[in-house]
């Protein structure tokens, strides 16, 4: 009996030992952190990215991280720094948003590298909401070869309340060209008063529906979208647009944007289902 208990302790000790806070200096003076939980070796590592201005503590992400880890997957759940040292809190919409999509992509790349540096050569990117878009933007660049698959949950494009998005983009570009750094306040996604420098705002503004659909279409890895048909945050006709490009997509009936309540299980079930279709990690 004592021997069996000792064996169990030895078996679970590495996982327990790997469940720790990971800090990463993403740029001078800016450190970011992530919750890293090591899983089984044969299973891909899942990089879970939170939604717009949230942290890894956000319920949808945190719950899924626990469940995936419980299912034996290595999980890395970073909190994007958004140029805030050791950001621990959700960033307010009204805050000075001194971050950009490019910086987000860089941070994602650094976390992928971190996984790779820790032996994970088989990485699955999992994003929720705007995190799905940021991961998609990462994939739209030059993603690491270790990234094998992408799961986008409640994928949303950068929505901006403006009569003419092209005019806004043009205006922002103009300000950027003229090195104007005055904060621009604009309604972005769920934030009605989003204040950011023109360049940073421009980096998000360019990710409209067409560019997002294009990035999906051109994604270099296996892809799975999990969407809820009761998601009121999505733009009108977004699901139809996704279906139109024949994106692999599971629509969870009745699920909202956050896949909460009983739909947490749907999300987990579909995620695990997708992960199980992937080839085993080396």
């Amino acid at each position: 009996m004592r021997l069996k208990l000792f064996c169990l302790l030895i078996l679970f000790f590495p996982a327990a030992a790997l469940a720790n806070l990971v800090e990463l200096k993403v740029r001078p003076g800016i450190q970011a952190s992530a919750d890293y939980r090591a899983g089984a070796r044969g299973k891909p590592a899942v990089l879970l990215l939170h939604g717009f201005l949230q942290t890894r503590e956000f319920r949808t992400v945190a719950t899924l991280a626990n469940s995936l880890h419980d299912a034996g997957y290595t999980v890395l759940a970073p909190t994007l720094s958004l140029n805030i040292p050791n950001r621990m809190q959700s960033l307010s919409c009204e805050a000075i948003h001194r971050h950009s999509m490019n910086e987000d992509i860089i941070e994602i790349a650094r976390w992928v590298n971190w996984l790779k540096s820790h032996g994970h050569q088989h990485i699955v990117l999992f994003g929720h909401s705007f995190g799905s878009l940021q991961l998609l933007a990462y994939l739209d660049g030059k993603p690491d070869a270790a990234v094998k698959a992408y799961i986008g949950t409640s994928l949303i494009e950068t929505r901006m309340a403006t009569p003419s998005r092209p005019d806004l983009i043009a205006q922002l570009k103009n300000q950027v060209q003229r090195n104007q750094t005055t904060l621009v306040t604009q309604s972005v996604s769920l934030c009605p008063r989003y204040a950011a420098p023109p360049a940073d705002l421009l980096s998000y503004a360019v990710w409209d529906q067409p560019r997002t659909l294009a990035a999906i279409k051109n994604a270099p890895v296996r892809m799975q979208l999990i969407m809820g048909d009761a998601d009121k945050i999505l733009g009108h006709g977004w699901l139809q647009a996704l279906q139109h490009i024949q994106t692999p997509m599971i629509i969870v009936p009745g699920a909202n944007h956050f896949m909460d309540a009983e739909h947490e299980f749907d999300l987990l079930e579909h995620t695990l289902g997708f992960l199980q279709t992937l080839p085993s990690a080396p």
Partner: peptide, 25 residues
């Protein structure tokens, strides 16, 4: 506060933060 720490690292919009942001928040 995250935003306080941000100002000590990136103080480009410090005055805005000091005069407006801390009160709005």
């Amino acid at each position: 506060w995250d935003e306080t720490r941000q100002q000590l690292v990136i103080s480009e919009y410090y005055n805005y933060w000091r005069d407006q942001r801390v009160y709005e928040s």
